[in-house]
Design a protein around this nucleic acid. Sequence first.
DNA 1: GCAAAAGTGTTAATCTTACACCCATGC
DNA 2: GCATGGGTGTAAGATTAACACTTTTGC
Lengths: 241, 241
Amino acid sequence: MPQSLKTAEIEKSTHQDYFNIAISVDCVIFGYENKDLKVLLIRSDLEEFEGLWSLLGDLIRPDEDIEDAPYRVLKERTGMTNVYLEQVYTFGSLDRHPSGRVITTAYFSLVDILHHQTASNNNELHWHPVSDIKDLAFDHKKILDTCIERLREKIMEQPIVFNLLPDKFSLRQLQDLYEAILGVELDRRNFRKRIMLKNWLVDMNEMEEDVPHRPGKLYKVKNIYKNKTLTATAKEILFAD
Amino acid sequence: MPQSLKTAEIEKSTHQDYFNIAISVDCVIFGYENKDLKVLLIRSDLEEFEGLWSLLGDLIRPDEDIEDAPYRVLKERTGMTNVYLEQVYTFGSLDRHPSGRVITTAYFSLVDILHHQTASNNNELHWHPVSDIKDLAFDHKKILDTCIERLREKIMEQPIVFNLLPDKFSLRQLQDLYEAILGVELDRRNFRKRIMLKNWLVDMNEMEEDVPHRPGKLYKVKNIYKNKTLTATAKEILFAD
DNA sequence: GCAAAAGTGTTAATCTTACACCCATGC
DNA sequence: GCATGGGTGTAAGATTAACACTTTTGC
């Protein structure tokens, strides 16, 4: 950390340069619907990017922990709370924002589209299948690609995809979701074996209903993997060491 | 990205709050010496952290790409250029810096201690074995731990550890290095098989000299894996798409 | 009874781990 | 000649990949 902050503080009185960088967060909000991995976008309100969509983001407030900022953005823009969020990368090239110097930290979020649907019927917001997205405002396509890459790595090891599904789901739904994220087909028997070995799931002893074929068993994720609620500030209070 | 930047710009005239956050980079500079993974630290110059060591960092300049900042810090503080650097995580809790609100992006760097030794004989700088480090100024211990964790994951897949070694090295040296980073012992035969399968190395057809035992063969990493020179700006110029 | 998806096991191939002996050099 | 680390192969175990048939439901 800045050994030279003192120096900077002296300079601050003469020129405000060091404080002429704004910092924002951008949220890649993933959802899953109709066998597509989707991302929630908003119409860009900048002339430079007319007609393009952009990620949801906002400047970080001076009195706000960086980890709290993406929670606030999600809540303010979509009403969603209790979401899974993960920091991915910080983007700060000089020309990434046309209105000034803005460095942004990208987070991805996983939400259950159906459960949150009522909250997000703002007509400036729209769910786009990620495979349809060619270009976005700012450097948001690059941010999106970086987050998809991270998501793909992460779901192989960690029980996070359940945040994209309703509480109860069948193994078929889960496999379709993995296939949508990874962009590959998986063998059904091997997929089931691998998932069961991970020991992430609880058998609900219920079956699918109203399906035009043999119904599948329903599962939920174990409660210990459902720790998605806390903001950074809440975590610090609860788990202070 | 900030849909609300316009809003922020309006507020800027009334209160400078959004620009009262400074952003810095901190570099976890790893080296390898005497079978120890080491990190280059500087004595903290803040009263609050008297006696503690801290990472090398500096505020990002308003006219500087974020990816260039850690290169600049390394060059200014140690004279080192041509180093491997990787962004890891951005830390921004409210109280992490006693002098004000500073959000910092952590990078780790891998350097060959012997090759860079002449440049870093500044007596405020010191190489510390990471296993000896109990506490650091600011949240730098947490930053260090995060970077070590990332380094451990990364060396299993990517040919980056060679940046910590001289150009020519034996398989024994390489294995000792992996063991130092991972903190485990490895089986020699299995290690050699795995490394050779990766196909990262070129046999120099030379042998160690002046060793009090049977000399080992010397290897170097393939040239295609030695792309550590470019700054972000240079990359943009060369690889603009 | 037919369409559609659920459910299930075995085999081959690959990767990983454990392990021991002879060799080349300096002293 | 002895101490030190270099160099090498094989067998057992674990993991992964490929693959097909029967079952249950709605219509």
